[in-house]
Design a protein around this nucleic acid. Structure first.
Lengths: 338, 338
DNA sequence: TTGAAAGCGCTAACAC
DNA sequence: GTGTTAGCGCTTTCAA
C-alpha cells in the first residue's frame, strides 16, 4: 500500500503539502501543486478513505435503510439514490431491515459504528427517538415516506391522500366502478391511513353511493393474492380493486386470473408505486407513480446539504403522485390485452 | 462521542485492557472483564469501527458487486448474501455497477479505500487482472457466475449447460416443441455460451430435427420484449421460447400477449432464474432455478473461510440448477391460466 | 509557501 | 494481568 508519506518523500515535500494539494486547500505554489500531482499520478496513489474519515471525524458513507428488497419499488429507489450519491462523492451503505425491528436496531448501531455522515430512512420500525439518537451522534437523517410518526427532522413524503384519491376517482368516474375493494397496507401505517382518507374523499366526491370493502395486506405479493382469493372464495362480489402497492396488485391480479375473472372487463385493478414491471404485466398494470427519481434525488441532495451545513434547518417536503392509466383498469385501451 | 479512553478512565484501567475485553482477547481477570463490561454498558460505549479498521488494516465489510438491481434476481441474491453475512458479523457493502465498466472501476477502488476484507463479484466487466489487484491488496475474492474468463481464485458457477438442457429437453420431449427460439444473453458471456451448448445438446438428444432461432438480449425485460416483437413482426413462426433469464421471459410473454399469441397453447415459454414473481405471472412462468439461497450461503461462507484463513486454497464450486415447470410451458397445468 | 507535530480512536507489541 | 506506547494514514493547527 502506498501512502501519503511515500508521495511526500518522492516529491521531496512534507505530507502536509501533499494533503493540501490533495484537498485543494490552496496555499501552495502552482509549481509545487503540479509537481505533487505528477508524483501522485506516477505512483498511482489513492488516499485511504478510512484514515481520512477517522481524521476528519466523518465518512463519505450515507446509510440507506429500506424495509425490504422483495418489493421491486425499493431496488429501483436504491438505484436512484446510489446514483445521485455517487455523483456527489458519497457511497451508499445499504441496510435492508426486512421489516424487522431487530435488524433495524442492528443497522442503526452499525451506522454509528461506521461513522456514516447521514442516513436516509424508510422503515416502519424507526421512531422519533431513534432519529434523535442518530442526530445526537452527528448523523443527519432524512425519512422517506412510511414514517407513521411526527418528528422534527427532514422528511420527504408523497401525498398519499391525493394518490389514493386519483386512483379511486379514476375507477369511479372514468370506469363507472361502484363496488371497490381497497387492499391497504398495514393498519398502523401512516400511508395506509392517508390512502384511506383519499379513498373516502374520492367516494364522497362521487355524488352517489359506492360499495366498498377494505382489507389489509403487508405490501407483499402474497398478501395481495391471499386477500383477493379469500374475497372471491367467500363470494364477495366487486368490480374493482385498488391496492396500496404494485406487488399486492400483482398478487390480486393473479388471484383473479386463477378464478377466471377477467381483468379489466370484470374487475379493474389499480396499484401504487409504478414499478417498472407494471408495464409488462398482463394486462399492463395501472398504477400511482410516486416519482422514485424525484424522491431519490431530493433525499440525497437534502441530506448532503444537512451534512455540509450542520446549521441548516430541516425541511419537510411533500411530493405529488401521478396516476398512470394502463390496461388493468380501462377497457378502452385493453382490447389486445384481455 | 465516547471513546475507549473514557471507558478506561471510568473503569480505572488502561485502554489496552478495555481493548482486550472488547475483543475477547483473554489475559484479563474475570472480575476486570465484568467490571469493564459494566462500564461499557453504563456509558453506552460503541467502539469506532473506522478506527478499528485503520488500526487493524481491515474491516468487517464484504463488498458485493452486482451488475444491476433491475433484474429481480439480484435483489433476491443480495438479500440472501446480506443475511448470511450478518449472521457471521459482517456487513455488506453493496456495489451496483449497472453493468458499466466505469462504475466497476469506481467500486473496485472504493473497495480498497474502505478496507473491505473480501469481495463477492458478479460482473461481466471484471477480469482476472482486477481480481489479482484486489487479492494483491489483501482483499479475498469470490466470483459468482457471469464470469467469462479463467482465474485462479474462488468461484461459484451454476451448470448452465445443464440448466439450458433441462429447459429445452422439457420443451422438446414433454411439450413436443419443434420450433424453438432461444433468447440468449450477451454473446461474449460464458453463461450465454454454456447455455447455447446445453441448447445444442438437448437438440441432439431429441433424435429428430428441431427448428431453432437464436437471438441476443441483454438480460433486461425490454430486450426480451423487443426481440420477440421483432420476430413476430417479421413473420417468424415458432412454438416456444427459451429465455436466458426471467426478466427477458417476462418481456417475451408480454410481446406474445400484445399480438394475441396464446401462452402456452400457441407458444411455450421458459425462463431462467426462478425469480419470486415467476409464480405470479400470467401464465405462471416456468423457469430454471439457480438456487440463489445456495449460491448466497456458499459464497459468504467460502469468503469468510478465505478471510479468516489466508492460507486456505481457493475452491471452485459448480451448482446444479433445477427446472421448475409452471403454466407458461405446459398445457396440462394451464387450463385456468390461459 | 511550507514543514513539524499533534491527534482522530483503536490495536498490539513490549514491558512490568 | 495490566499498562505504556508506537503506530494505522490522514488532516490541521502552529511556527517558521
Amino acid at each position: 500500500m502506498i501512502t501519503i508519506k511515500d508521495v511526500a518523500k518522492e516529491a521531496g515535500v512534507s505530507v502536509a503539502t501533499v494533503s493540501r494539494v490533495l484537498n485543494n486547500k490552496g496555499g501552495a505554489k502552482p509549481e509545487t501543486i503540479t509537481h505533487v500531482e505528477n508524483v501522485i499520478k506516477k505512483l498511482n496513489y489513492k488516499p485511504n478513505k478510512i484514515a481520512k474519515s477517522l481524521s476528519e471525524g466523518s465518512s463519505n458513507l450515507i446509510a440507506l435503510l429500506v424495509p425490504t428488497l422483495n418489493n421491486p419499488f425499493f431496488p429501483e429507489l436504491v438505484r436512484e439514490i446510489e446514483k445521485v450519491a455517487n455523483e456527489n462523492g458519497y457511497n451508499v451503505y445499504l441496510c435492508n431491515s426486512d421489516d424487522d425491528r431487530m435488524k433495524v436496531e442492528y443497522y442503526l448501531e452499525s451506522m454509528i459504528d461506521h461513522y456514516v455522515s447521514g442516513a436516509i430512512i424508510n422503515s416502519l420500525h424507526v421512531d422519533a427517538s431513534d432519529l434523535a439518537e442518530l442526530e445526537k451522534r452527528g448523523i443527519r437523517t432524512i425519512t422517506i415516506d412510511r414514517a407513521n410518526f411526527e418528528h422534527p427532522y427532514s422528511a420527504i413524503t408523497v401525498d398519499h391522500t391525493l394518490g389514493a384519491q386519483l386512483a379511486v376517482t379514476h375507477l369511479i368516474r372514468d370506469e363507472k366502478c361502484n363496488n371497490i375493494v381497497f387492499i391497504s397496507g398495514p393498519k398502523n401505517e401512516k400511508s395506509a391511513i392517508d390512502r384511506l382518507t383519499g379513498f373516502t374523499l374520492a367516494l364522497n366526491e362521487a355524488g352517489h353511493p359506492v360499495k366498498t370493502h377494505i382489507c389489509y395486506g403487508d405490501f407483499g405479493t402474497a398478501s395481495g393474492y391471499e386477500n383477493t382469493k379469500a374475497l372471491i372464495q367467500n363470494g364477495h362480489s366487486f368490480d374493482s380493486i385498488f391496492c396500496a402497492n404494485d406487488a399486492m396488485a400483482i398478487g390480486a391480479m393473479r388471484a383473479c386470473h386463477e378464478f377466471g375473472i377477467k381483468v379489466p372487463s370484470e374487475v379493474k385493478i389499480v396499484g401504487y408505486d409504478n414499478i417498472s414491471l407494471a408495464s409488462y404485466m398482463y394486462p399492463t398494470l395501472s398504477s400511482v407513480d410516486q416519482c422514485k427519481e424525484d424522491i431519490g434525488r431530493l433525499a440525497v441532495n437534502e441530506l448532503i446539504q444537512l451534512i455540509k451545513n450542520p446549521k441548516n434547518k430541516q425541511k419537510q417536503y411533500e411530493l405529488e403522485p401521478k396516476l398512470v392509466i394502463r390496461n388493468s383498469s380501462t377497457i378502452n385501451g385493453g382490447s389486445i390485452n384481455e
